[in-house]
Amino acid sequence: MTDRATQPPAPDEAVVVQIEASSFDAATAELRAIAALRIRGPRILTSSMLSVRLNPGDAVGPALDRLLALIEDRKVVGYYLDFTLAVLDRHLRPVLGTELPNRRVEISSLYYDRKSRLPSKNAVDLRLDSILRDLELPERDSEGAEANALAAAMAYLRLKPADGG
């Protein structure tokens, strides 16, 4: 753990990060799009949404700078966050010297925790669309990074513990 991580994060704030990539292999996938949204209290700050598309050959640096500026020391939230951060860390490690040290919150684990508290015969369905439907949230109208970030942000607000953790 670095010093940065031990600093108290902004209270009740989080940043949702979703990406699009050329494949699902985190070791080789190329970044195609990044979307990030800040969450403050019950609000999703769509007005300051970061949304960048990257064509093959585009420099990734400037987009990552903007992403880091948006994240600062807030906890990072996402659906399938391991993949997202694995791809991002490939680019960040040469710059930061480490992977992103922020606290991480995986939407599907939040959802799994809630569901597994209820007795049920069925396995928990962790697909994003199923989570949205179950939480009575609006459906996504695409599978792009922006739509996923917004969906993840709404799911997070529904699922997060009352104390903001």
Binding site: P42, R43, I44, T46, S47, A153, M154, L157, R158
Partner: peptide, 13 residues
């Protein structure tokens, strides 16, 4: 549209 934020309030909030 650009200035818009979104808020989700749980019941009784």
């Amino acid at each position: 549209q650009a200035s818009l934020d979104l808020a989700l309030f749980p019941k009784d909030h």
